[in-house]
Structures are given as structure tokens and as C-alpha cells.
Computed example of a mutant assay.
Amino acid sequence: MVVESDLRHIGARRAATSTKRFLGKGPKFWRDALTGWAMALPWLIGFLVFTAGPMGLSFYYSFTFFNIPQPPRWMGLYNYQFLPTWVLFRKAVYNTLYYVALSQPLAIVGSLFLAVLMNQNIPGRAAFRTIYYLPSVLSGVATAMLWLWLLNPRSGIVNVALRSIGLPAPNWLFDEHWAKPALVLMRMWGLGAGAVIFLAGLQGIPEHLHEAAQIDGAGRWRRFWSITLPMLSPTVFFQLVTGFIGAFQMFAPVYVWTQVEAGSTGTVGAGPQNSLLMYALLLYQVAFGSGANMGRASAMAWMLFVFILALTIIQFRLAKFWVYYEAGPEGGV
């Protein structure tokens, strides 16, 4: 009891001393502090008005029925209970998971393969790097329109090339079985951005590790699996996390394709049998389409946020089993 009393007394005395020192700072300290807060104030106001504020409102709206011309009406958990039973919601979830599961592994492997090729010491290497990266600087709308022409069942270059070598030419965006693979194919065209990140990781691998392994008789494949991949694992982890986050938010290409379809056929949909109805597209249609319901759209947005957050946390938890950091996971020695 005496020890506890002494410890509490010491703690209170230290707290009082710290408070006295803080309040006893000179004018220069307070002037510098105010200057710092004044510099940060525009960002803080922007964050509160354009980020934190809308997030808080959307969380509240997710429990309401909210059609913009009318005030929100409280509905409790109805939106969260209704969405899993909605056929279109389940279809959008399936399409999105299908796209992510197919495109993400291909994007990782393809980007790494492309980076290894661009890392070779060959003539014109800089030109090849530029060419491979160029598709990544195009806007999503321009890319979608380009691939809409390329995948035209009759006159598209892809089908013309397939027919020329005797292979069947799919209907791509007009076939429910080929619409999502077409979307994956379009993503593969933009592997340059991921390849540049992998290229930076490859060039950060110490050359002496490869030289030592080569002296010990290790071949190219052995060096790749035992040196390159482990040293590149932080880059792979970064690509996995950011790639999953981006893939679950696929929107621009499917929106453009469905708008073109609606203009040419006079119908509103998301590809044949809603095969291109991605989660973000359905969210947009619920929020701004006919019978707009901002409350239900907000609930969809929060469900997606929680799912991506949980997936990212799982990836970080699993990273300690396969991601290798040369200086330790916390950046220390």
C-alpha cells in the first residue's frame, strides 16, 4: 500500500511538472506553434469538409431512405438487411469477385514477367520501357473506347487476328461468358504501371547475392526462386494490397461499355445477362439512377469499405509469414 501511494504521488508530481513546463513556454514557442497550426489549417478544413464530413454523413445516410429532393427518413438496419437478399446485389458481388480472382493473379505474374524482361541489358531497353508504360497514362474512358473497338465481334482487330490463324472469334462484350474475360484482357494491356514498380524492386536487389549464388553453381531459375522472389516480396505485397483495392472498385470501363450498349440498343443494363454489373457500377446506379436511393448506396459503400479493410488487415497479418524485409519488418537492423 505504501509503495502504491508513493508511485501515485510520484506520477502526480511528474504530471504537474510537465504541465508547468508546457505552460511556461516562452512567446517564441507559442508563436511557432500557432504558425504551424495556421499552415496546417487549410488542409484540416479541407479534410473535415471534403473527407471526414461526407464520410460521417454517408454513415448516417446508410441507415436511412434518402432520395435527394426529400429529407432522409430513418430506417435502421433495413438497407443492410435488404442488400444481401437483392438479386442484382448478389450478381454484382459475384461479377466483382470473379473479376478480382481472375485478373489480380494474372496482373501480378504478368507485371513481374514484364519487369524481368525490361530489366535485361538489351539494345533499345529505354524505348521498350516507354512503350510498355504508355497504356497506363491513358484515361479509363479512352482505354474503354479503344477496347470497345478492338473487341468488336465483326471488325475488331482481336477477332480478325483470331480468324486469320483459324481460331474461333468470341462475341466478347455481347456474350455473357466472354464479357468478364474481355475486361480482364483489357487490364492485362495496362500492366506497364505494375511492371515499373517491379522494375524498381528488381534494381534494388544487391547484385553480389546473384554473383555469390552463381559461384556456388545456382542456375537462373534457382537464383530467381531463392534470391529474386524473396528480395522482391515487399514489392509483391505492395502490388497485392493496392491491386485488390483497385480491382474491387472497377468502374470506368464497364460504365462506358454499358452506356454505349444503352445508346445502341435503347436498353439500360450492364452487359448480356448483367455480366458486367460490377459492384461500383451498381452502387452508382443505385445512387444516381432512376429511383435514386442515397441511403442504400451509402450502405453499399460502407459494406465495400469494411470488406476491403478486412481483406487488407488479413493480408498484413499474413505478410509476416512470407514477406522478407532486409532491414527487418519495422525498418530496423
Rank of each mutant, 00 (worst) to 15 (best):
L106D: 02
L106Q: 01
I108D: 00
V109F: 07
V109Q: 04
G110R: 01
G110Q: 03
G110V: 06
G110C: 06
G110I: 07
L112C: 06
F113V: 14
F113Y: 09
L114Q: 03
A115P: 03
L117E: 07
M118L: 15
M118Q: 13
N119A: 11
Q120R: 15
Q120H: 11
N121M: 10
I122W: 10
G124F: 13
G124R: 14
G124E: 10
G124Q: 10
R125N: 09
R125C: 13
A126T: 13
A127G: 05
F128D: 07
R129T: 10
R129C: 10
R129D: 08
R129P: 03
T130K: 01
T130A: 15
Y132P: 00
Y132V: 13
Y133T: 04
S136K: 00
L138M: 14
G140R: 06
G140Y: 01
G140I: 03
V141A: 06
T143I: 14
T143S: 14
A144D: 08
A144L: 04
L146D: 12
W149Y: 09
L150S: 04
L151T: 08
N152L: 08
N152M: 03
S155T: 10
I157L: 15
V158M: 07
V158D: 07
N159T: 07
N159V: 01
N159I: 08
L162C: 08
L162M: 14
L162I: 11
I165N: 09
G166Y: 13
G166H: 15
P168Y: 08
A169K: 12
P170C: 03
N171D: 14
N171E: 13
W172K: 11
W172V: 13
F174G: 12
F174Y: 12
F174M: 10
F174W: 06
E176S: 15
E176H: 12
H177L: 13
W178E: 08
W178S: 12
K180A: 09
P181V: 07
P181R: 12
L183T: 09
V184Q: 11
M186W: 02
M186T: 12
R187A: 12
M188F: 06
M188W: 05
M188N: 01
M188E: 01
W189A: 00
W189N: 02
L191M: 11
L191I: 09
L191F: 05
G192S: 03
G192Q: 05
G192V: 07
G192R: 02
A193M: 11
A193C: 00
G194L: 05
G194P: 04
A195K: 02
A195E: 04
A195D: 04
V196L: 15
V196F: 13
I197M: 13
F198R: 10
F198M: 08
F198K: 09
L199S: 06
A200L: 07
A200Y: 10
L202K: 01
L202P: 04
Q203N: 06
G204R: 05
G204K: 07
G204T: 00
G204F: 00
G204L: 00
I205P: 08
I205N: 06
E207I: 14
E207H: 11
E207F: 03
